[in-house]
Design a protein around this nucleic acid. Structure first.
Lengths: 325, 325
DNA sequence: TTGAAAGCGTTACCAA
DNA sequence: TTGGTAACGCTTTCAA
């Protein structure tokens, strides 16, 4: 592969001039410009990014840290991040952390050694020490705000209130809230919204904890439905648990939405594939990913940022697991 | 951040010696070793990968090109690739190609300029010119074999035969095969398997083309079911279309599996979330991703490869969309 | 407007 | 066993 020296020689100018041309900075005569353009074309020259990085201490690599790309929420997010990054000339490195601090740290170290330009992170370990001394920009997505790290997230309280109120409107009188892990900020917020919506209303409620795992959610739903057959509404803190609940309920012979109504949270594609389609509080996943990426790139390139925290609003999508008379 | 020079100074040796230590090649006295270890610890030194790459013309970056990470098949694959890569010290760059030759080419160029170590590719554009002159190792996954490029894939003919035969065993007499795009190797193979299983049997069959898109599959299923209400079995060429078919059938009041039985292909997680659970010909997605990655790494590091084509066998998973009396 | 040359942090060859 | 040093391909300062 041709290098900058070859181009310089071919164009009859110095390496420095070619470099200036490449980076569009510094002065350049039209003559030189033309010769260089021709040389580049003739030699099919492409700048060596590694050499460039070594010199500038910068790459166009963005590390995307997610718990598990296999969880239906993250592919949609990753897609948005990737699209946006590509449009700005950045490239993303996929890191599955399994919410495991050591893996996160390992990745952060590996990428730091590569002069990664920045990180987009979805984790609830954001206060962990390994995030303290990262020297490149970070944007947090979806989870836990650490006061110093810019974050984009959904208004979870508001969203949960919205979803729960709709369940109420549909006549549910005996509602269980399948909440996410205690201590996980977004899960706590969703419970808060649920509680706000139900307090003072003429309904029975209960809250049970349920991780974002399909299998476990199935078990928990079965237990609930067995113990409290009077349940006629479920507000689930994630689409995954909502869909698990739907499946179990149907297997137990409950008619959804006639006997039992279900509202999920997330707005994952999966929600429209099950039947009946899942009514859910949809986060604007694509927008979240895109915003986070734009923010990060701004930080990388400008080192400035207007608003450190952006919240994207959630929207109720009504499908078949609820019925309004 | 400390560099190799600092370490050398601290350890009282030359940079060359430190380099030898780092790469575990060349001779080294125990004395030197000790001093260097101490220096590294003291300075918290981490080698600069960019400088290293510039010198060696090698990175530990692997480009993973998939059509769309949002398609449920690919997150599982990506996970396997990432796990395996990480275990070997490699890092993966995610590229969504949308099956678009220009995007693929763009990515290939961007990564080539970074000294990417190799590519794992899922595409049906493998014969496209931009794959001709790639200088780094490539492994193709799941799709189209180009004679020169090592490939890991499922035995699609065999898998489809397996699935179709099971449908027959379950008593389906009037079967439609929702095949994937014509010309796409794996889709053609699956039809072949379907045809093998049904030929000579006492069943009515028809084959309709259907892309791997949920929405379109819904439309097509509706049309089929309306036009041919006598259909009592569907063999779908992907889980996505199978699940679309399931949803539509249920919406049209067909009882699955009583009136209509469905078998999918892929073995995506989604299959166990719908109800009834989807009977499907499961590819061992994780194994495919892991094998491809191991093969690629072998090519990168040894430049040798025993078997250029590995095929992973598919397995029938029986769930609720079929009934055996 | 241009070019020489000193880095950037490693590796690897060659001598010692 | 060790160290000096050229080389990897680019950027950037400084002088011309």
């Amino acid at each position: 592969m041709a290098n900058i020296k070859d181009v310089a020689k071919h164009a009859g100018v110095s390496v420095a001039t070619v470099s200036r041309f490449l980076n569009k900075n510094g002065y350049l005569s039209d003559d030189a410009k033309e010769n260089i353009e021709e040389a580049i074309a003739a030699l099919n020259y492409r700048p060596n990014q590694v050499a460039r990085s070594l010199s500038t201490k910068q790459t166009n690599l963005i590390g995307l840290i997610v718990p598990d790309i296999t969880n239906p929420f993250f592919p949609e997010l990753a897609r948005a991040v990737e699209d946006t990054a590509l449009a700005h000339g950045y490239t993303i490195v996929l890191c599955n952390s399994d919410e495991n601090a050591e893996k996160e740290e390992l990745y952060i170290n590996m990428l730091t050694q590569k002069y990664v330009a920045g990180f987009i992170v979805t984790t609830n370990l954001l206060k962990a020490p390994h995030y303290e001394d990262i020297s490149v920009p970070i944007v947090a997505l979806d989870r836990a705000i650490n006061s110093t790290i810019p974050t984009v997230s959904t208004d979870n309280v508001e969203g949960a209130r919205l979803g729960t109120e709709y369940l109420l409107t549909c006549g549910a009188k005996n509602i269980v809230c399948m909440r996410g892990p205690v201590g996980l900020g977004l899960a706590d917020d969703r419970v808060k919204g649920f509680l706000q919506a139900t307090s003072g209303e003429d309904v029975e409620t209960q809250v049970v904890e349920c991780p974002f795992s399909f299998e476990i959610a199935e078990k928990i739903t079965e237990k609930i439905l067995l113990e409290s057959p009077e349940i006629d509404g479920i507000f689930a803190s994630s689409d995954t648990s909502a869909i698990a609940a739907l499946k179990v309920a149907q297997a137990m012979g409950r008619k959804v939405p006639n006997d039992l109504q279900i509202v999920g949270f997330d707005g994952v594609q999966l929600g429209k594939m099950v039947s009946p389609g899942l009514t859910t509080v949809a986060q604007n996943i694509y927008k979240m990913g895109a915003s986070a990426t734009k923010m990060l790139i701004k930080m990388i390139e400008d080192d400035s940022l207007q608003e450190k925290n952006v919240t994207v609003s959630a929207e109720l999508i009504v499908r078949g697991t609820t019925r309004k008379d």
